[in-house]
Computed example of a mutant assay.
Amino acid sequence: MLTNEHIIDQALNRIVAGYVFPEKAAELDTVIRGRLAAGAYEGLDGAALCTAVTADFQEVVPDKHLRLLWTDVPQTPVRAGDADDADDADENAARAAFSARLREENQGIRRVEQLEGNVGLIDIRLIPSADEGAAAIGAAMQLVAHTSALVLDLRACPGGMPEGAAMWNSYFFPDDQVHLHDIEDTPSGTSRQFWTVAHLPAPRYLDRPVYILTSADTFSGGEDVAYTLQAHGRAVLVGETTRGGAHPTTRYAVTEHVLVTVPTARTISTVTGTNWEGVGVLPDLPVPADQALATALKAAGDRLAAA
């Protein structure tokens, strides 16, 4: 059985090697190793160890994607001298698991409804990849294509894929000429641009009001959709300030049951020049999450009546 010292050492090595802000990673490394040497994690194991270390991570660096996680499903840990192959295996395994989950959950689309007043509602629980999710997203948008206003419910969306977020966002712009944001990757020193998609499997939703419901649980990829559409003036956000995780993340297996999640990149909006990391996405109409739908429907009804 691996010791806590080994687990924390391996996790910190991953963070120092890849974290999006190297100077913060160095600070974190010093503080956590000091706490380890002082006996802060003695007597802890399994999920309890992961919870304690994660709390300390986020006390030093308040990044909600920076975590030590316990998983009941055995993983393949990194092997000495085989780090590159292990990295690929980690990433492939994580993608395969997420793809399987998305297939089980209808690519993250829980329900689509036509509400009173010809207002469409799409309840989104995960953001899929663009390739596997395109057909499901298109089917949902086809069902609301002739509504007078649209509500996207992201209150229970914990995240997903940036390519899928770009596809969702593309439906609310007229063409492929909108530069949404960039993602800057620290380990590779590269930057990737995200633009609206040229060809979509359903009609674009243009010249009609869009409302997005948010909660304190809305996170990561769900925040991407909300923040981007709000920043570009394409949606009104209703509900609570979101959780605040804007850094794309890579998971590494430290042991068979312990993963470290390392934010390796950061999202930069072409409108604001920044992102929602640590602060969340702020609603335009702040109300408790359980009142968000009613508030959005009233706002939509008033706007449609005025028009």
Rank of each mutant, 00 (worst) to 15 (best):
A231T: 13
P209Q: 07
L229G: 00
A130F: 07
V151P: 12
E163F: 01
Y211M: 08
T147Q: 14
A130N: 11
D185Q: 08
V119C: 04
R208I: 02
L152Y: 11
L180G: 01
G138Q: 07
T147F: 01
P158K: 10
D176Q: 13
D224G: 01
T218F: 08
R192H: 07
S220Q: 07
P201W: 13
T242Y: 11
R192F: 02
R155T: 15
H146A: 02
T214P: 09
H232T: 09
A156W: 08
Y227E: 06
V144F: 10
I124W: 09
A202I: 07
Q177A: 08
R208D: 03
M161I: 04
T190F: 00
V197W: 08
G244W: 12
A198T: 09
D131Y: 12
V178F: 07
P187E: 11
Q177H: 14
T242S: 10
L180A: 01
M141C: 03
P248R: 14
A246R: 12
W168S: 00
A139H: 13
I183Q: 08
A139W: 05
M141K: 01
A246C: 12
E116G: 03
D185A: 01
R125T: 15
D176M: 05
T196L: 05
D176I: 05
V225H: 04
L237A: 02
Q230H: 14
P203K: 08
G221W: 12
A136H: 10
C157W: 10
I124D: 05
L154V: 09
L229Y: 11
R208T: 06
A140V: 13
Q230R: 15
A216G: 13
G133Q: 13
G138H: 10
D175V: 03
A166Q: 07
A231V: 03
T214E: 07
F194D: 06
I212N: 10
A226E: 08
N169P: 00
A130W: 08
V119Q: 11
S129G: 13
H179P: 07
G239S: 09
F219V: 06
Y211E: 06
T186D: 04
Y171W: 15
G160Y: 10
I122F: 09
D176Y: 05
L206D: 03
L237V: 11
I124G: 00
D176C: 06
D131E: 15
E184D: 09
H232A: 02
G138A: 06
R204Y: 07
I124M: 02
D185C: 00
P174K: 04
A134T: 13
M161A: 02
L152A: 02
E163Y: 05
T249D: 01
S129E: 15
R243Q: 10
I122W: 12
P174T: 00
I183Y: 11
G159H: 13
A166V: 07
I122A: 03
L152D: 10
V151E: 13
A198V: 05
L213W: 08
G117R: 09
G133L: 03
P174I: 04
A136F: 06
A135S: 12
A135L: 10
Y211C: 02
I137H: 12
T190L: 03
A226R: 07
Y211G: 02
P162F: 05
I183R: 10
Q230I: 06
L150R: 09
V236M: 14
R234D: 04
A226S: 04
Y227S: 06
G138W: 12
S191L: 04
N169Y: 01
T218E: 04
A145D: 05
A235F: 12
I127D: 11
